[in-house]
């Protein structure tokens, strides 16, 4: 997916670029509103991540202008203001959602997904692998016409595997993707979700293999 990040803090922007790249997303960074406007004119984005306090103006004004352009690109506001009054105001101005800094990346992902789902989807939300059609937005897989809904953690886990088929993911790595850092869960919890996914992938060529001592990987062979 292609994101536009409007954020004046270069460090945060770089970190976000890095982080989103890990999941295979492209992120253009605009440091101020003027740059953001010029980006919007030449490219189209699946989603805009907008900071409120910017060197050349208030993000809320951008939001207003954006909505009046009848541009339907969804906007998620990254706000440092946590007061409820501010948050409510943002939604009234036309933001699709907001997330308060600092944020859990999984939550940002979840919110992006929710917004996109509400807005009717991004262009490349369908992935295909070994006879499995995976709609990450709808949260479904279909194997030979049989549609199977995925639960949230199953979906996120499958996303990790689908992003790099054949790559081995360690248990701790997968845990970080699945559980929040505030949750204390044992590594064995991963096995539960891997088990569930395997069950749902039955009937297709796709399989999640256990690589003893290293972790798991997705393969398409029988």
């Amino acid at each position: 997916m292609r994101f536009l990040l409007v954020e004046d803090n270069a460090q945060l922007a770089r970190a976000l670029v890095d982080r989103l790249a890990l999941d295979g997303h492209v992120l253009d960074h605009a440091e101020d509103l003027a740059t953001a406007n010029s980006f919007i004119e030449v490219a189209s984005y699946d989603l805009i991540l907008l900071d409120i306090m910017l060197p050349d103006g208030d993000g809320r004004n951008f939001l207003k202008a954006h909505r009046s352009r009848t541009d339907r690109t969804p906007v998620i506001v990254l706000t440092a203001r946590s007061q409820i009054t501010d948050r409510v105001g943002l939604l009234d101005l036309g933001a699709d959602d907001y997330i308060v800094k600092p944020f859990d990346f999984s939550e940002l992902e979840a919110r992006c997904r929710a917004v996109l789902r509400r807005r009717g989807g991004a262009a490349d939300n369908m992935r295909h692998f070994a006879g499995v059609d995976f709609d990450s937005l709808a949260g479904t897989i279909s194997i030979a016409g049989r549609v199977e809904p995925l639960r949230n953690r199953e979906l996120r886990l499958l996303e990790v595997f689908f992003a790099a088929p054949g790559q081995i993911f360690s248990k701790p790595h997968l845990m970080d993707r699945l559980f929040s850092f505030t949750e204390d869960v044992s590594e064995n919890a991963i096995e539960v979700y891997v088990g569930r996914l395997r069950k749902k992938l039955e009937g297709s060529a796709a399989r999640i293999e256990t690589v003893r001592g290293l972790g798991y990987r997705l393969t398409g062979k029988t």
């Binding site: 803090n9 970190a15 890990l22 990254l78 440092a80 800094k101 600092p102 859990d104 790595h173």
Partner: peptide
Amino acid sequence: VAEAAHRVRTPLAVVRTQAEVALR
């Protein structure tokens, strides 16, 4: 207050994001 929150939270967000990236 907004400015203070912004000033504090943005670096926190940087730290957190970078930490997540590093964790990976």
